[in-house]
Design a binder for these strands. Structure first.
Lengths: 139, 139
DNA sequence: GTAACTGCAAAATATTTGCATCCTT
DNA sequence: AAGGATGCAAATATTTTGCAGTTAC
């Protein structure tokens, strides 16, 4: 586990530091998307807020995590799949955001249908964000 | 035109004020999505920044505009269709964001395919954000 | 005239930057 | 030892709130 995380960092030409390991742990544990605020809350006083900003930025640049489009103005981050299991690329994502508890789920197994674009528009990436009520909040 | 805008406001139990008319004009002219910053820039010194914040918030509450999910942390707003032409509701949106010029297009005629959710998840709304290169930047 | 809207000031939040120090390699 | 990463302080940027004055109806 710790080795996995270290390897992931090394593979991306990043030095293995405590903050980076700690933040990656958060993502692995949560199995979902996290905001800067949530991460800050989880790591507590352990690391400086600025370090978290810079770490997240670095991870995005390296393609270890990606940002998720949200309707409110919060920025959410989630692990890129190729980061965990190498081999299959994914340019498309399906995310589910619960209106109740705010949790973001990555539904990686759900297939994204292709969208027919007007002439002259070149497709690069499709993000699908579904909102509603998740299994935990459904009662 | 001005009458259209006034009617739209009255229909939503909002008093017809200069700032509201001016901001709605921006949306009609741009025919796309706008950020707070862009609006502020367009109306110039005419209105206070706080007024813009409050006006946008009011419009969202009334369903005149809606927020668009974006991958960067900017919040974009666009006119809701039922606001322009009443009669057909739309809970689903397709948006296209150009990586080059940053313009957001509302592709309202593009159909959104339904997404198969895991058990226990209740669907409420689907947002699709496609990114790539738009017709203007394509060369 | 009254309720609602706006502008200004200021508070609260969020994000970025510079620099000295510390840690990884 | 050297380069990069971190922490701290502070600068910027963004969003929210309170209140007094103004405007729409």
């Amino acid at each position: 586990m710790t080795t996995d995380i270290s390897n992931l960092l090394k593979r991306n030409q990043l030095s293995v530091t405590n903050s980076r390991k700690r933040i990656l742990e958060c993502f692995h544990k949560s199995d979902g998307a996290l905001t800067h605020a949530v991460i800050e809350q989880q790591v507590g006083e352990e690391f400086d807020r600025v370090t978290i900003y810079r770490t997240l930025q670095t991870f995005v640049e390296k393609g270890i995590i990606h940002t998720i489009p949200t309707t409110d103005n919060s920025v959410k981050y989630a692990l890129c799949k190729e980061a965990c299991s190498e081999g299959h690329h994914h340019d498309n994502h399906v995310h589910f955001i619960c209106d109740d508890c705010g949790t973001t789920y990555c539904l990686d197994h759900v297939t994204i249908p292709s969208v027919q674009l007007p002439n002259g528009f070149k497709h690069k990436q499709t993000d699908v964000v579904v909102s509603g009520v998740c299994e935990k909040c459904d009662n």
